[in-house]
Amino acid sequence: MSRIADAFKTARRQGRAAFIPYVTCGDPSLDRSIELAAALERAGADVLEFGVPFSDPMADGPTNQRAAERALARGTSLKQVLEVVREIRLRSQLAIVLFTYANPVVRFGIERFAEHAAASGVDGVLFTDVPAEEMAGFRPALRAARLDAIMLVTPTSNRARMKATARCGSGFLYLVSRTGVTGTQKDLDSDLAANVGTARKASRLPVAVGFGISTPDQVAKVAAIADGVVVGSAIVNEIAEEGDTDALAGRVETFAAPLARACRRSP
């Protein structure tokens, strides 16, 4: 069984939703990303989403755009992201998903990318800008390398689209909580429960919810209805505020721990 499937199974057995933090790799540096992965694991992460920085992140809000700019200013490349994963894998069995735009992977070469990613210890890949219709160009290479393809479904996906999309994926199904780009928000979308319900009917995969979830209170609400909760921009904000310091990992661990605890469902 894949590390991702395993992580969801363990969380379910323990009566909680999987906690899935996101950080942009290379922000503020490659070494700090390794420290941050360890800190987030200590805080209770079940799956780590690692962002591959891209020059034109059209699906991201300002927080993650700035993070990508910081990482790119340091010269972070896809190759280096894979090296960071290899480094993390030496000490950890934390499930890792790469969150990437298509272009860096297309440029790297999809087959070559899949082989290198799997060899580095990556478990799954999520393409922000590759819908089910275009997965034919990516799926065979991922499958051959035994990488999970994490597919996104959204409030604008009808049931047929959700089904077709889920069929392209494995590991888990990522439900975007609202229409819009990544970033924090005050209130969760009122249709969220209904959308989780539609996603569940469309697929047997665990359903994780992301985009705009930033507080323990919001995490708890999502954890009550979904199998996993993704928190991204809120953590990236902490990283941006602290910057490249020795206190960074500790600060992020302290910030993430209550989010992880909020994934436990009250009996």
Partner: peptide
């Protein structure tokens, strides 16, 4: 039908935009 001109074109967008497209 998939929006390709030879090997070029297609629909590489976030899932949210598939319905409006």
């Amino acid at each position: 039908k998939r929006g390709y001109f030879g090997e070029w074109g297609g629909t590489f967008v976030p899932e949210t935009l598939m319905a409006p497209l």
